[in-house]
Simulated assay, not measured.
Amino acid sequence: MTIYKSEAGARLLRERYLDALRAWPVPHDQVRVPTPDGETFVLVSGPESAPPLVLLHGSGSNSAEWAGRLPALAGAFRVYAVDIIGEPGMSAETRPPLDGGRYAAWLDAVLDHFAVGRAAFLTSSFGGWVALDHAIRRPARVAALALRCPIGLGPMKKGFVVKAVLLALLGEKGRRKSVAGTLGEPESSPVVEHQLLVSANYRYRTGPFPVFDDAALARLTMPVYAVAGADDAMVDSATTARRLTAAGAEVDLLPGAGHHLPAAGDLEFLTRAVANGDFTG
């Protein structure tokens, strides 16, 4: 089954992404990487000699999510903004199972294509789950992890799905209220408008995301930073913060913030990782 609800919807979301690419804020190369799970679209920017940084966006998104941050990131890193497979970007629609290491193998193929043996990761939501899975399975390949609203650490809030279903019954007004509540954004926000467009045309994954146990988190040998919204309507951020802190990570829990966060702390953390020599080896 296609990840889109219609051919017209697929074209609409692709055109929106192409518009974003035409306005990309930094010089870049667009690379299509062959992998065992299908072609993967990667935007490469920044000095070739700079430390490598991989960007992984959230569910229902693509690398356009990072456009506003690229000027700062590409000034300090060789940036690889990767469209995750099975999401509404320019990569293959393949959706591997979330257990068994397929996503880690897929990321290996992407890194190998660019001859990147070890990189830092900056991630959002589901991208954080993908990066954590890779870091747990391939710790030698991950120099540092910066996680924004990561999933897979605290449980998804049970009331979230029920509330979303009930609000959806109210039509457009209910759906707008649901998306705004999830993101922690005003109903008039452009971010809410975009997510409404995505949800109208894209099929999100169903079913729970696996939660990493304490033994898995103990295998995170690299520096880890996470930032999450204290008022996230979807994820139990307090549990996320507690578990990551216990695993030795730096954690910022932002009061009043939801699942959509302002830039906070991650670039400083990554710059410090470079200064500390965490990218060597």
Results as ranks from 00 to 15, higher is better:
8 A>P: 06
9 G>D: 07
10 A>T: 10
17 Y>H: 10
19 D>W: 11
21 L>G: 03
22 R>W: 05
23 A>K: 14
23 A>W: 13
24 W>P: 08
27 P>M: 05
28 H>V: 15
29 D>L: 14
30 Q>N: 15
35 T>P: 03
35 T>D: 00
36 P>H: 01
36 P>K: 04
37 D>T: 13
37 D>L: 10
37 D>V: 13
38 G>H: 14
42 V>E: 02
45 S>N: 14
47 P>C: 04
48 E>C: 07
48 E>L: 10
50 A>D: 10
52 P>I: 04
54 V>F: 09
56 L>V: 09
60 G>H: 02
60 G>C: 03
60 G>Q: 05
61 S>P: 04
65 E>H: 13
68 G>W: 01
70 L>S: 09
73 L>T: 12
77 F>V: 11
79 V>E: 02
80 Y>K: 06
81 A>I: 04
82 V>A: 08
82 V>C: 03
86 G>N: 10
89 G>T: 08
90 M>K: 01
96 P>G: 03
98 L>I: 15
98 L>C: 15
100 G>K: 14
100 G>M: 15
101 G>H: 15
102 R>F: 13
103 Y>S: 13
105 A>C: 12
107 L>D: 03
108 D>E: 10
109 A>V: 09
111 L>D: 03
113 H>F: 14
115 A>Q: 12
116 V>Q: 15
116 V>D: 06
117 G>V: 01
118 R>E: 08
118 R>T: 11
121 F>A: 05
123 T>D: 05
125 S>P: 04
131 A>T: 06
134 H>Q: 11
136 I>Y: 03
136 I>A: 05
147 L>P: 01
149 C>Y: 00
149 C>V: 08
150 P>K: 12
151 I>W: 00
151 I>R: 04
151 I>Y: 03
153 L>A: 01
155 P>R: 08
156 M>P: 02
157 K>F: 05
166 L>W: 14
166 L>G: 12
167 L>V: 10
170 L>T: 15
173 K>P: 12
176 R>Y: 09
178 S>E: 15
181 G>P: 09
182 T>S: 06
184 G>N: 01
185 E>N: 08
189 S>V: 15
191 V>C: 07
191 V>D: 01
194 H>W: 14
197 L>C: 13
200 A>R: 09
204 Y>L: 03
206 T>N: 13
206 T>P: 14
213 D>T: 11
213 D>N: 14
215 A>F: 12
216 A>Y: 12
220 L>I: 04
222 M>N: 02
223 P>T: 10
225 Y>E: 12
226 A>T: 13
230 A>H: 00
231 D>H: 05
231 D>K: 02
232 D>L: 13
234 M>F: 09
236 D>I: 00
236 D>G: 02
240 T>W: 06
242 R>D: 09
244 L>H: 03
244 L>D: 03
245 T>L: 14
246 A>I: 11
248 G>R: 08
248 G>A: 08
248 G>W: 07
250 E>G: 07
250 E>D: 09
252 D>V: 00
253 L>E: 02
253 L>K: 06
255 P>L: 06
256 G>Q: 02
256 G>Y: 01
257 A>Y: 00
260 H>M: 01
261 L>S: 00
261 L>H: 00
262 P>D: 01
263 A>I: 00
264 A>Y: 03
267 L>C: 02
268 E>A: 14
270 L>R: 07
270 L>H: 04
270 L>T: 05
271 T>W: 02
271 T>M: 02
273 A>W: 13
276 N>M: 12
276 N>K: 11
277 G>K: 15
277 G>E: 12
279 F>I: 08
280 T>F: 15
